[in-house]
Design a protein around this nucleic acid. Structure first.
Lengths: 143, 143
DNA sequence: AGCTTGACGTCAAACGCTTGATAGTCATGA
DNA sequence: TCATGACTATCAAGCGTTTGACGTCAAGCT
């Protein structure tokens, strides 16, 4: 099995993801927001009107996890559930003005991290990394 | 903030890591082992005699999480706690023969996934990805 | 020696997520 | 028209983890 198992691509991937996620969490904490909250907010922002279950599929989490986050963010007045025009039982998710404002502040932090990374890599390497990562995702998905 | 926030490097990183981790979990389940168990076993294998707290730092988890896993694996007879020669309160972690055997079987599965990824990328791109990811980790770590 | 500091391990409580099960709603076809 | 099926949302229970606090132990300092 080799002792060089730590030099694997998947380990480097894990370390990088962990480091990035940890940094995001640290920087977002002063804003009173967790990374998961930001993820949900920006998802709703980019595609308003989605149902909770549909959102859960896109984020690769369970519907309950989304529902839990939605309840919390709804309590803060950053998110609202609207009745679906056709399906009464389904709820569309939309951002409130407060939600948009919170998202703007949070995204400034996240974009700053992203910028720091891409500047450290350089534009060409960043593009390379992006394509390589997408290639990995695609390769793994239909394994 | 732009709607192109989904095309960020950190998102691609997250997606790739999530996909890989999910696949590992799926493939490891038939062996009755979770990905976290494998991670702990191979860590102990590569550096025997470490204390739980030290191991926790390297894996970026809390000491309690490690202790929980150790208890479980110890119950299966795959891991054993030995008394530290100098510090009586500290416990060294070592693999048992059964642990080594379980690790061998699991590593075969993991190595297969790794191979599938690197073959899909090609040797040159794999090396590139590795260096890029390490660069990201290093950049983020001292941000 | 006595005391403080730092580190390890463990207990208890709280939190978040997953799994499984239940109820409600709309679309499809007999 | 009505029954079946698919999908959504929610509740309840279980599991794993984090957080906070406590007891223990070795090393360093006064």
């Amino acid at each position: 099995m080799g002792l060089g198992a730590l030099d694997r691509v998947t380990w480097a991937l894990r370390r990088a993801e962990l480091a990035v996620q940890t940094l995001k969490e640290q920087r977002l904490r002063p804003l009173g927001m967790a990374a998961a909250h930001y993820t949900l907010l920006i998802s709703v922002h980019s595609e308003p009107g989605l149902a909770g279950a549909e959102l859960a599929r896109r984020l690769n989490v369970t519907p309950q996890a989304v529902a839990s986050l939605v309840t919390r963010l709804e309590g803060r007045g950053q998110l609202e559930r609207r009745e679906h025009p056709r399906h009464r039982h389904v709820q569309e998710l939309h951002l409130t003005d407060a939600g948009r404002e919170a998202l703007r502040a949070a995204d400034q932090v996240i974009a700053d991290i992203e910028r720091h990374i891409t500047e450290g890599l350089g534009p060409e390497e960043s593009a390379q990394l992006l394509t390589l990562l997408d290639h990995v995702s695609k390769t793994v998905r239909n394994a």
